[in-house]
Amino acid sequence: MKCETIVPLLAEYTDGTISAEDRKTVEGHLASCEQCSRHVELIADALNTLRSVPEENVPENYFSSLVPRIRERLERRRRFNIASIVPLWVQEALAPAAALAVVASFIALFFIFEPSADNLASLSSIVRAMQNEDTTALSDYVASQNIAQTNVDAEEHVLETASDPSLVTRHFEKSAFGGLHGDVEDISVSTSLISSDPSYESLSSDEVDQVIERLSHLSAGQADQTTL
């Protein structure tokens, strides 16, 4: 008998679950196969070593405290899992409506931003490039739009002319969100940030008004240039 054929029987032979008939077959093979004999010897030694090592301990009361802890974990997850609160039939009923809402949102976004043919072409080329894991296409696209930079430059200019330079840095920290998104609405966000920023307390109300007015003026001008 070949060694590969005898291997499953050797497993039973070494753990003592082999039948009398198979035992004879294995012992016949071992008598003529030095390699398998060595394996069996090695396994016998390994099993002896394994048996000589005592069981590891479990902390006291571990098993008596397991059920309450599992219950606690279940409860904790239930609190964060909306699926367990809303009945399944409601989830199933709402699923098509949710899918429809997602599609409608995309269509609405399309009409709100009215992408130009050029931008659509650029976006589709990015999608294709990203499918090929070409990440440089995305950064090239961002650079080509120059939107964030335009916005940051506008704010920087107004702030520099209105107050001391240190305010510029502080303001940028606060308005990073508005600056990066760079559309007209974000300019309004930045305007309200300016009026609520404590660092502008040192400015007179006229100066604050002047900053806001100039920002609004710029945002109106930028609306013509900014195309998303």
Binding site: P8, L9, L10, A11, E12, T14, D15, H39, I43
Partner: peptide, 9 residues
């Protein structure tokens, strides 16, 4: 069985 045998070996 073969897996067990090889594991112990």
């Amino acid at each position: 069985k073969a897996n067990y045998f090889h594991a112990v070996r």
